[in-house]
């Protein structure tokens, strides 16, 4: 199509331009934490270069994601690990896996990159108010769950929820994310924290040993109309956790999942993350199991 629209010499009429959702906010890498013993997981703390951008982003809710954008490399959708109650920065824990994440792992504090978001929906906080909340997480899918826990434990928010139970597991102690926080949560009496690992040779390990589904079966409270479960983890964990939750009495519309799919635009335009009529990026990533049951499982 030769009439294609990118002529570079002409003057664009800026007043016609609507807000561009593809334009990332510039951010500076403020801190990098290596989270796992194999160094495959790092947490990046970003600060916004422009206070206006920070104000626009600040309205995010736990469960949303953002596109991390690196000039010359590309973008990746990553769940927001910081919590809306933490101000002045945003945090993402990134697994080194593909082109963009590998590049990001080699970037340094002070480097400039971009963030687009917040994107997608979030855990249904309005529905969860006044309810018991069970959180089941596995591996590095714990990021938006961390955001959620920090949000719920905030003194202004904790009274809004009844019992909060967390089951979180990783392959080994060295692969657990946010260890300092986990240990702190373990000591609290307003949160039932169950840390587990698939296995360990550490004789001093004082938490659980076992896969997440059986530990959930042992530790999680019974489901009832006042209880919701949020599940986030690798597909195999989700597969074996579902029958456990069913056995505990959680209805499918009380089981909340966060899906992942290959994404590009993150705003429901580019068409690739669709599962049936739903787009994981815009209609999700958070769905109830009930919703997913009515949708082709193309994730």
């Amino acid at each position: 199509m030769t009439m294609a629209a990118h002529s570079t010499q002409s003057t664009p009429s800026r007043e016609e331009l609507v807000d561009n959702p593809y334009l990332p906010y510039p951010v500076r890498i403020d801190d990098i934490t290596v989270e796992s013993e194999d160094r495959s997981l790092k947490t990046f703390k970003f600060v916004f270069l422009n206070p206006d951008d920070e104000a626009k982003f600040a309205a995010y809710k736990a469960g949303q994601f953002a596109e991390l954008s690196i000039a010359g490399v590309g973008e990746i959708p990553i769940g927001i690990a910081s919590s809306p109650v933490e101000k002045g920065f945003i945090k993402f824990t990134v697994n080194k896996a593909g082109v963009v994440t590998s590049h990001l792992h080699n970037m340094q504090v002070g480097d400039i990159m971009g963030v687009r978001g917040p994107l997608g929906n979030w855990y249904p906080w309005e529905t969860l108010e006044g309810k018991n909340v069970l959180i089941v997480g596995g591996g590095f899918a714990f990021t938006t769950l961390r955001s959620s826990i920090i949000y719920m434990l905030d003194p202004a928010n904790r009274p809004k929820f009844k019992d909060i139970t967390v089951v979180y597991g990783a392959r080994s102690p060295g692969m657990l994310l946010y260890k300092d926080e986990l240990i702190e949560w373990e000591k609290r009496d307003d949160l039932n924290m169950h840390i587990t690992v698939d296995g360990t040779d550490d004789p001093d390990w004082k938490y659980n040993v076992g896969f997440v589904p059986p530990i959930t079966e042992q530790k999680a409270p019974q489901g009832d109309p006042d209880s919701y479960a949020i599940v986030c983890g690798p597909p195999i964990m989700i597969k074996f956790t579902q029958p456990v939750l069913e056995k505990l009495g959680y209805d499918h519309d009380h089981i909340i999942l966060s899906l992942e799919n290959r994404m590009k635009c993150g705003i429901g335009m580019c068409g690739r993350c669709g599962i049936g009529r739903e787009l994981v990026c815009k209609d999700g990533p958070v769905f109830t199991l009930n919703q997913i049951n009515q949708t082709p499982r193309e994730y």
């Binding site: 629209a5 002409s10 003057t11 664009p12 009429s13 593809y22 334009l23 510039p26 000039a71």
Partner: peptide
Amino acid sequence: LTYTMDKNDPECGIMKEADKDYG
């Protein structure tokens, strides 16, 4: 979007809207 990757440019790595002709 367009950007420079010149490390000496203070705008390095910051995305800009591409100039467009919407005549």
